[in-house]
């Protein structure tokens, strides 16, 4: 009910129940630029596998008993460097990847067909792509920009890896920097803009429903996830340029409650970095957030309570650089 300013304190239980290193995937020839989890399988059986990306290749790893991982397949992508893996929820035998030099220039799908036991590439989109997100039900939304205009588009994917349908979404004036699906609302999508606003779309009609300013406390916020509850829209944001303050520490994630009817907002929860441990790179899944600290540790938060629940210190082999 009340927006709390929670101090960044690591729960005592997190020290005891913190993250443990359970396995290592070693790929000495290729420094990792991204990692993601994917469902993979055949004949009705599927298991959670991992994909690691280097600039020129993607590797699929599967669990091997008892506690290790083996490389199942490698795709070589030598023409354009890999920038990121784009997770597509609820898909199987499919990896979506964004490629480019400094910015994303193309989005490709890599698909395995168990019927023909073969892999194939499919080019989904090209352009000067600023942001991309994979949504449930085989949908992908991206924003791209030319000198004159911005294009925001949703592509519905077919199981063979092609595009089944394309829906143009009305672009805001400002560049869209990130998208996030709204939990439990299939046709709603939120985005953040370069002008530090949250925008809301209707994915079915392509309408831009609302633009709501975030405020000046945390410039250039990035949205990760949104939930609609009791007539309010709760948006999980990270603050890549947030500054450390004495009272609140360094902000990692915040949950803002917006009233989409009026455009007004209030802070609902804030997750701060442990004192004296700056850091930024982060990711969100459901109501948990993770970030890499500059010290080389990984911190995990319960975003709705604004509490740091686990901390993984740097490993013997070095500092963590990326958390997914």
């Amino acid at each position: 009910d009340v927006a709390e300013q929670l101090t960044p304190v690591l729960l005592d239980s997190a020290r005891e129940e913190g993250l443990q290193l359970v396995s290592e995937l070693k790929d000495p020839w290729a420094p990792c630029v991204d990692v993601s989890a994917v469902w993979w399988g055949a004949g009705g059986r599927r298991e959670l596998c991992l994909v690691t990306a280097s600039e020129s290749a993607l590797s699929l790893w599967g669990p091997l008993p008892p506690h290790c991982w083996g490389k199942l397949y490698t795709w070589h992508l030598q023409e354009v460097p890999v920038i990121q893996i784009v997770p597509l929820p609820d898909t199987c035998n499919l990896v979506c990847v964004a490629l480019g030099e400094l910015e994303i220039g193309e989005i490709r799908l890599l698909i395995y067909s168990s019927e023909t036991d073969s892999f194939k590439h499919s080019l989904l989109k090209t352009g000067n792509i600023k942001a991309v997100v994979g949504l449930k039900d085989w949908r992908l939304v991206s924003s791209s920009r030319t000198m004159q205009e911005q294009q925001v588009e949703m592509v519905s994917l077919s199981e063979s890896g092609g595009s089944k349908d394309r829906q143009t979404l009305m672009p805001p004036e400002e560049t869209v920097t990130a998208f996030a699906e709204v939990e439990g609302m299939r046709e709603a999508l939120v985005g953040t803009t370069a002008g530090n606003s949250v925008v809301v779309w209707n994915l079915k009609t392509g309408q831009l429903l609302r633009k709501m300013h975030i405020g000046y406390s945390y410039p250039a916020s990035i949205c990760h996830r949104a939930y609609s509850d009791s007539g309010l829209l709760f948006v999980v944001l990270s603050h890549p340029h947030g500054k450390e303050s004495e009272c609140c520490g360094s902000p990692a994630f915040g949950v803002l409650a917006f009233n989409p009817r009026t455009g007004r907002s209030a802070a609902a929860a804030s997750s701060g970095l442990p004192p004296g441990q700056p850091g930024r790179q982060g990711d969100v899944w459901d109501t948990a957030g993770a970030a890499v600290l500059t010290s080389g540790a990984v911190a995990v938060w319960d975003l709705l309570r604004g509490r740091c629940t686990a901390l993984l210190p740097p490993g013997p082999a070095g500092h963590w650089a990326l958390a997914r």
Partner: peptide
């Protein structure tokens, strides 16, 4: 977050905004 801070709340905000926004 109280209603006085955020203004009148509607459970059907998505449908209402979709009906009001330009097509």
């Amino acid at each position: 977050c109280s209603e006085s801070d955020l203004g009148p709340i509607s459970l059907n905000w998505f449908e209402e905004l979709s009906a009001e926004a330009p097509p």
